[in-house]
């Protein structure tokens, strides 16, 4: 941020900008955790002849498509919000929520299929890594779903009271951006993890 803009802002404005800054640093911290997990995966895989190969169930391709699609609906929700079309914003958030939930369901189904292949968490270290890394990611999706629920409840209450005009304060605009950034990030994170697992699973 440039020196000039720093000088002109009030304490509250600075705090507002700082919130989106803080989110990006937090995302960096989350990324470091997954970097730790995937590094451990690579080190362990290279370490010995004890790695059991497995096939990634096809359902994970579908779940990857679903999470990418949810990012598209989230973009739509952001656009609708910026234009002040609140009903559209809410509906697109609902669509994102549904896709997020579908993603989780598909992940669970995928884990079941993997287990049916005989890739067990206790017996096979390759499987254990798969479950832990994708499970840790699913926990972050769950957190995103909670955030989505809160935002949907907030906007629905506004629509019912029919005073959506007052809703467009800069603080609330920022909240929407923060929510969207987090959602896009965890979507991107899954694509990274999926490609990583695809490339490294045997």
């Amino acid at each position: 941020m440039s020196e000039l803009s720093l000088n002109m802002q009030s304490h509250e404005e600075k705090q507002l900008f700082a919130r989106s800054f803080a989110l990006w640093i937090a995302l960096g911290a989350i990324l470091m955790m997954f970097a730790g997990l995937t590094s451990a995966y690579i080190v362990k895989k290279a370490d010995s002849g004890t790695w059991t190969n497995f096939t990634i169930p096809g359902i994970f391709y579908i779940s990857t498509l679903v999470i990418i699609l949810s990012s598209v609906t989230m973009f739509g929700a952001q656009r609708a919000f910026r234009k002040g079309w609140m009903a559209g914003y809410r509906n697109l958030l609902l669509a994102t929520l549904a896709l997020g939930a579908l993603f989780l369901a598909l992940q669970i189904e995928g884990w079941m299929q993997l287990k049916a292949q005989g890739i067990d968490m206790v017996e096979e270290i390759s499987g254990a890594f798969f479950y832990v890394i994708s499970g840790a990611h699913a926990a972050h999706i769950l957190g995103g779903i909670v955030i989505l629920l809160i935002m949907i409840l907030k906007i629905s209450r506004r629509i019912k009271k029919q005073n959506t005009e007052a809703y467009l304060t800069s603080a609330r605009k920022l909240n929407v951006t923060l929510m969207a950034s987090y959602w896009h990030f965890i979507g991107f994170l899954w694509v990274y993890i999926f490609l990583f697992l695809l490339y490294n699973h045997n």
Partner: peptide
């Protein structure tokens, strides 16, 4: 966060039977 990654795997080893 990397320590947390290490702890997650340790917690799984201790409590959920992984190795």
């Amino acid at each position: 966060p990397v320590l947390v990654a290490g702890f997650i795997l340790l917690i799984f080893d201790r409590s959920l039977g992984t190795s």
